[in-house]
């Protein structure tokens, strides 16, 4: 494979921190770049589709994504994810508080060259 096409896998926890909460049966996850330079990677790689796929079996509705370039952050809404939400939910995490770290488990691929330039290799 040509050098320029080689990629490396990296887990989001090395690129971002996060906080999550709930609105009814919807979990929200705010994903914040640890460094400003990481934000474009998050925008490129952590799409609504990727997040929906990541939470397969957990998020039963659709996923919406909003960009906050000013904070270097993305906000995700994961609909139908909390077993009915609020007091109806039987889940340990009825308020979606740990969806933040669940998202940080995601593995993404970035080009070797980019990883090197950001000292991520």
């Amino acid at each position: 494979m040509p050098e320029a096409l080689r990629t490396m896998q990296i887990q989001l926890i090395h690129l971002a921190h996060a906080r999550s909460g709930d609105k009814g049966d919807t979990a929200n996850v705010g994903l914040i770049a640890l460094r400003d330079e990481f934000y474009p990677i998050l925008v490129r790689e952590v799409t609504a589709e990727r997040v929906k796929q990541h939470f397969k079996g957990i998020c039963k509705g659709n996923v919406e994504r909003f960009e906050l370039a000013n904070l270097g952050a993305l906000n995700f809404l994961l609909h139908e994810s909390l077993g009915g939400g609020g007091t109806l939910s039987l889940m340990t995490d009825a308020q979606g508080k740990t969806f933040s770290t669940a998202l940080l488990r995601m593995q993404i691929d970035i080009p070797d060259e980019e990883a090197r330039s950001l000292a991520l290799d």
Binding site: H17, A18, R19, G21, D22, K23, N28, G30, I32, F66, L68, L71, G72, A73, N75, L77
Partner: peptide, 16 residues
Amino acid sequence: IPSIKEQLVYEMGDPR
């Protein structure tokens, strides 16, 4: 700044 950012995105819908 990171602690403020975490709270800013807490329970957020459409940020606009």
